[in-house]
């Protein structure tokens, strides 16, 4: 199961390694978010690897299946051992690893130690870029208005509020516009939106009403779960003007605008 690591060549021998934990929703539904995250992490000077991976176990954990969550977590802990950092383009999956993995293994000292070790080096993407990497997006530019939705887990379990806003506002041309109650839940809630679709829909409508009222070009968030909920509702409403994007995508897009002007190539600049 370590094949993935062996086949990768380090792009820069001295650079610290970041294992990208893409998360299953990005992996299956929005691969472009994964590539955007890679672009940002590489721009910040990291050597990005992508170990073979699946889900973080959150559906089982929140569904009350602790054993299942433990089994999945044990696999993930194994896959992500040995990197300097683990970064996920998701507040909710990063919080699962950071906040909940360590308490899952109270009965298994060895796994608990590995879980704590992994938790300590796991970050959500925007907080990693700002708090750990001190990343300056430089002369990236994008002429657009953006409204940012705070994903619940990232906001409340990891305290991510300023970091994405800081990154977005440091892009030349981006105008950040706050919606009413950006910290109100979008109604996704993992299994919740599958089990209680009517209620999830109403909560989603409240969110999309706030989004539409702002009238920005983009609505950005840090979790694909929220994005799917918001995009699905807007799509059904026939709302085509507002683009729903992961915060990594919009930042990577801004980065691309500059790198096209300033330097040749983007993702593959290091080849």
């Amino acid at each position: 199961m370590f094949l993935a690591r062996i086949e990768l060549l380090p792009a820069n021998e001295s650079a610290k390694t970041v294992a990208l934990f893409a998360t299953c929703l990005v992996d299956l539904f929005q691969p472009e978010v994964g590539f955007a995250a890679v672009r940002l992490l590489e721009a910040a000077g990291f050597d990005v690897r992508v170990p073979d991976q699946g889900c973080c176990g959150q559906p089982n954990f929140n569904g009350g299946d602790q054993d299942g969550a433990r089994q999945i977590a044990a696999g993930l802990i194994r896959q992500f051992a040995g990197y300097d950092y683990v970064v996920a383009p998701s507040g909710s999956c990063a919080a699962m690893v950071r906040c909940h993995y360590p308490v899952l293994f109270a009965d298994d000292q060895e796994l608990e130690r590995s879980a704590v070790e992994l938790a300590q080096k796991t970050w959500e993407l925007t907080s990693f870029l700002v708090d750990v990497a001190g990343y300056d997006i430089g002369s990236a530019a994008l002429d657009a208005s953006v409204t940012y939705h705070d994903s619940c887990s990232g906001l409340r379990e990891l305290g991510i509020r300023e970091q994405p806003r800081q990154l977005l506002s440091s892009v030349a041309g981006i105008e950040l516009r706050e919606m009413e109650q950006p910290d109100a839940c979008c109604g996704f809630g993992g299994l919740f939106c599958v089990k209680y679709p009517d209620v999830a829909d109403r909560i989603g409508s409240v969110k999309t009403d706030s989004i539409c009222a702002v009238g920005a070009d983009y609505v950005a968030a840090g979790d694909v779960g929220c994005l799917m909920q918001i995009e699905g509702k807007l799509h059904r409403l026939g709302e085509k003007k507002i683009k729903v994007v992961h915060v990594a995508e919009i930042l990577a897009k801004a980065l691309l605008n500059v790198s096209r002007k300033d330097s040749p190539g983007s993702v593959d600049a290091d080849d």
Partner: peptide
């Protein structure tokens, strides 16, 4: 009440 974005044809890991 809502549409659900369909999964992508190729996963991120496969594309990567």
């Amino acid at each position: 009440h809502r549409d659900i974005p369909a999964p992508a044809g190729n996963s991120f890991q496969a594309q990567w």
